[in-house]
């Protein structure tokens, strides 16, 4: 996104270019123009633009993309951490 940039070098996005068949789905689903298709291969051109929504990985027919997608708000993460430790949190969550 042009107007907003989040933290640098944090995204978990990985693309195995050798597995890419150049279908262009990742370019089609990415809302932040992270990928660019050239010569039948996809490339990550804006790594820090990735918000880890997981659309590219989900729609990649050869599973060439990996990303840790999931809830991205503070209260959601707290609830998740509490649950991992088997502590019942106060529920909450952003778009529950």
């Amino acid at each position: 996104m042009k107007d907003f940039r989040y933290l640098r070098n944090v995204a978990t996005l990985e693309l195995r270019e050798s597995a890419c068949i150049g279908c262009g789905r990742c370019v089609e689903v990415c809302p932040h123009k992270v990928f660019f298709l050239a010569e039948k291969r996809s490339r990550i051109v804006d790594f820090d633009g990735c918000m880890e929504c997981g659309a590219c990985a989900k729609n990649c027919p050869t599973a060439a993309i990996k990303v840790d997608a999931g809830v991205g708000c503070a209260s959601g993460l707290i609830t998740e951490w509490l649950r991992e430790r088997n502590i019942r949190g106060g529920g909450g969550g952003c778009c529950s």
Partner: peptide
């Protein structure tokens, strides 16, 4: 960050 359209989970 849970409401925005550009923050990533790893960043949060």
């Amino acid at each position: 960050t849970g409401c925005t359209t550009f923050t990533s989970r790893s960043g949060v």
